Simulated scan of single mutants.
Amino acid sequence: MKNSMKPASDILSPREIEIASSYADGDTYQKIADRLCLAPSTVRTHLATVYRKLEVSSKLALLARLNGDQPSNEDQTDHAAVISELALSLEEALRRERTMAEVLKIISRSHGDIDAVMAAILGFALELCEAEFGVLFEHHGNNRFSASFYRGIPSAFRDWFDEQGAFAPGAQTGLGRMEHTHEVINIFDVRAEKVYHTDDPLRHATAKLGGARSFVAIPMLSGDRLVGAFTIYRQQVRPFSREATELAHTFADQSVIALENARMFSGLRLGN
């Protein structure tokens, strides 16, 4: 009996049923991963297998199959593996487009409420880039930064930043290297770099208080001027891919717009 004629429960494993049902109901990879103690990339791999096994090419078709409907003829193909990959990639691209549109809407309607805007931007970034927490640093010149906005950060790490105020990161830290080069710094494992084996306070706080292993630091630039750094962290060794880094860069650019808008609104208020 072909898979197209069988109910989904006869085709999929219990774990695949659980993941497929959550995804069809609207959960993100990150939410599913957190609940099942998996990596988001593992969730995606399971979903690609589910799409192939059920011979579906969209979330709506997946939901229909889980509810007992038979696939339409257009869903049945000898290239199921290719179709499943293309379907998931398309859904991910559409989700990114919707998120970016929502970010721009939030910025345009914020009227200078920078706290709400940055909370939203960091939240979207963490979800789409599959990261546990994020910090936006403002740059004050003279090699000094302050951690101004947070999302999902462990309380001990946040308290450490609050105690530091404006601080100068070591030259070998991700933040220090980013300031020098104005380039993206992608740290595969914070404990594997030489700076971790020194007495650098930022690197030790990142690893010990934040529990971070992999992170990426994106320079926030206004023209040639460094405005700050957009950083997102994973608490396991899972380096950020080029796609995730590019996505984080887009959020960093939106953060610059939000900061500039907030400063403009603040100037207008002071002038009135």
Rank of each mutant, 00 (worst) to 15 (best):
G123D: 04
L226I: 03
R234Y: 11
Y51C: 13
D10G: 12
Q76A: 15
A39Q: 11
E179M: 00
G112Y: 07
N261F: 07
Q76K: 13
M1W: 15
I232L: 13
E55R: 07
R158A: 11
A205E: 00
A229T: 12
E18R: 13
P7Y: 14
A131E: 03
P201M: 04
I19A: 10
S222T: 12
L259I: 05
F157H: 12
V256M: 10
L54C: 13
D78G: 08
V50L: 12
D200M: 04
G174I: 09
H111I: 00
Q235N: 15
L226P: 01
A80K: 10
S21E: 10
A229N: 11
K2I: 14
G210Q: 00
S146Q: 09
F167I: 07
E163M: 09
R35D: 07
C37G: 15
L47P: 10
Q172M: 06
S155L: 02
R263L: 13
P7I: 10
L202M: 00
G271K: 01
N186V: 06
Y23W: 06
A24N: 08
I218H: 02
I32M: 01
Q76W: 12
D10A: 11
L202P: 03
N142D: 10
M5F: 13
A119S: 09
R191A: 12
E102D: 06
D10K: 11
C129S: 04
A8G: 03
R65T: 08
A192T: 10
Q254E: 09
F161N: 06
D78F: 10
S13P: 12
D224Y: 13
D75F: 01
G210L: 05
P219W: 09
S255N: 00
E74T: 15
G165E: 08
F137L: 03
M5D: 14
P219I: 00
A116E: 02
K105A: 02
L202K: 05
D34S: 13
L60S: 15
A120T: 05
P40G: 02
A166P: 01
V43K: 06
N73E: 10
A205P: 06
D27K: 03
E74H: 14
Y51M: 14
A212D: 09
A131R: 01
A33L: 01
E193W: 04
D199N: 03
G271H: 01
T99V: 09
A258Q: 13
N261C: 06
A125Y: 01
F149I: 07
G134D: 03
E97M: 05
D69W: 13
F145K: 10
V184W: 08
I187S: 09
H139N: 09
R44M: 01
E243Q: 08
F149K: 09
S41M: 15
T250N: 00
H79D: 11
A156T: 07
D162G: 06
E260P: 12
S110P: 02
A81M: 15
S266P: 10
F188S: 03
Y23F: 05
Q30L: 08
S110R: 08
R177C: 04
A39L: 10
G174D: 05
A125H: 04
G134N: 06
A252W: 02
P71G: 11
A125R: 02
A24Y: 05
A64F: 06
A87R: 14
K105F: 09
S266Y: 02
I114E: 04
V256F: 11
E138C: 00
E55Q: 03
G271C: 03
A101P: 07
